Simulated assay, not measured.
Amino acid sequence: MNEAPPSFDEAFAAQLEQLLHWRRDVRHFDVRPVPEDDIQSVLHSASLAPSVGNSQPWRFVRLRSTELRAQLATHVDEQSALAAERYADAAQRDHYKSLKLHGLREAPEVMAVFCDGEPLAGKGLGIATMPQMLDYSVVMAIHTMWLVARVRGIGMGWVSIVDPEFVGRLVDAAPSWRLIALLCIGYPSEPAATPELEERGWQSREALAQRTFEK
């Protein structure tokens, strides 16, 4: 007999809305460690995310080595300095340089998330015309773990100022793996009612009407 699906009431819906509202891209971390049980719970939640053809292409690499983490932080700082030069306007360039864009040196957990472009699971279903669906599946897993981490008071920060090939070499990733995200994970050093980039005057969330179209 199939198990009856649960019913989610209005109170749960309101809490879910709050969870989405309070999810943050965290850059400032407390150095205290995250319990292993919580890390495993967050990873387990990622495995429940939808994936094309049930291919489950996500591959998680926890960077436990102090030496590798130091190399990674230095690399990101170098890439960030290069990225700053993209801004021709001096004021905007200085604004960019003033932002804290990663917590790789403080976060107790650093995780590289890859997509296996040749997964055995799924048997190729759903990717004949859109192979990038594998990448999108990994993004869904990351978002799922992000929300579950927030429920437990754990923050996550997505670092994208990296050379994917450098990270792949650093962790000896398989040739079929593509880097999707570099995540800093840990307890935020302070609560943030407003997203940091909005608080620092970089970019606020725009109205949904500007992002919705009809044809």
Rank of each mutant, 00 (worst) to 15 (best):
G122W: 02
G122N: 05
K123I: 12
K123A: 10
G124N: 10
G124M: 14
G124K: 12
L125P: 00
L125R: 14
G126C: 05
I127Y: 02
I127T: 13
A128Q: 10
A128Y: 03
M130W: 14
M130R: 15
M130Q: 12
M130T: 11
P131V: 04
P131I: 04
Q132P: 05
Q132M: 12
Q132L: 08
M133C: 09
M133D: 05
D135V: 09
D135N: 14
Y136A: 12
Y136E: 10
Y136I: 13
Y136K: 12
S137I: 15
S137T: 15
V138C: 07
V138H: 02
V139G: 14
V139F: 15
M140F: 13
M140Y: 09
A141S: 15
A141R: 11
A141H: 15
A141G: 14
A141P: 15
I142W: 06
I142T: 09
I142G: 02
I142L: 03
H143D: 11
H143Q: 12
M145F: 06
M145W: 10
M145N: 09
M145T: 15
W146A: 00
V148C: 10
V148R: 12
A149N: 11
A149K: 10
R150T: 11
R150L: 07
V151L: 04
V151R: 07
R152D: 10
R152Y: 03
R152K: 15
G153V: 04
G153R: 07
G153E: 05
I154G: 11
G155A: 11
M156Y: 06
M156I: 14
M156F: 08
G157P: 14
G157T: 05
G157V: 03
V159E: 01
V159H: 01
V159S: 02
S160K: 06
V162P: 12
D163A: 06
D163Y: 01
P164I: 00
P164D: 01
E165Y: 06
E165I: 13
F166W: 04
F166Y: 13
F166M: 04
V167C: 02
V167A: 01
V167L: 08
G168F: 03
L170G: 00
V171T: 06
V171H: 05
V171L: 08
D172Q: 12
A173F: 03
A173Y: 02
A174E: 09
A174V: 08
P175Y: 10
S176C: 11
S176N: 11
W177D: 02
W177R: 02
R178I: 06
L179I: 03
L179N: 00
